[in-house]
Amino acid sequence: MARRTTIGIGLDIGSTTTKGILVDSSGTVLAASLVTTGASAPIAARHVMDELSQTSGKELTGLPIITTGYGRTSVEFAHETVTEITCHSMGVHSLNPDIRLLIDVGGQDSKVIRIGPNGRPTDFELNDKCSAGTGRFLEVMARVLEVSIDDLGPLALRSTSPSTISSTCTVFAESEVVGRIGTGAAPADIAAGAHLAMAGKVATLAKRVGLVTPVGVTGGVALNPAFRHYLSKQLNSSLWMPDKPQLTGALGAAILAVKR
């Protein structure tokens, strides 16, 4: 970088959505954007850059950009790429420095990160090989139950007796749910069972890294109240969630960009 700057840009290019954040050196968010990644990560990233520029009213040319997420290497205008593990860790640390264990559940993966006192990760585990335990699992369940993904969580919370969904595989769980519908189980109970199964998978991953409270949750799936409810029960711990849990990766990237 030719000149020192006090503003940095973080782009989190995930498989489902692309997120962007513009922060200044005090950590204040000047603009944020979230778009669907679609078929082209570079196009989505451009789109996010345009939105950041419009919202903040700032010219972004020349500002340091760090990309993260699975598409992090697909954008040629980035100055550096950093993994989502470090970025989420830094992002959450800037919002709540007490958090030592972070559970991030996105559309296609879930990760559990132990955060060190300086905000850097000290250990982590990823589940990115199997869609059970990720947002994709809930999307499939919502489709089978014919409700929107946003309504699935609230529906599940109405249940008093969750169905048992024993399969830990999305494909098999789908047929299991179809079977439950066939035997007349209430949609709310089935939805609750699906959340329970998924939260169980995520909790296992978390326990592998080691439970340290307080626990933070981020990622798009964190917005789902039933997921938080069942995860909190499984871990026997309350969960802290930032206002915009999908944006912490981009926030961490932006903070690192300012420090560059």
């Binding site: 790429t81 950093v82 993994t83 000290t122 990823l126």
Partner: peptide, 18 residues
């Protein structure tokens, strides 16, 4: 052997040494 998944884990480990 999934290159992208392995790369993310290796990158994250190396970032711990920065």
């Amino acid at each position: 052997f999934n290159d992208a998944q392995i790369q993310t884990r290796l990158d994250a480990l190396l970032e711990m040494f920065l």
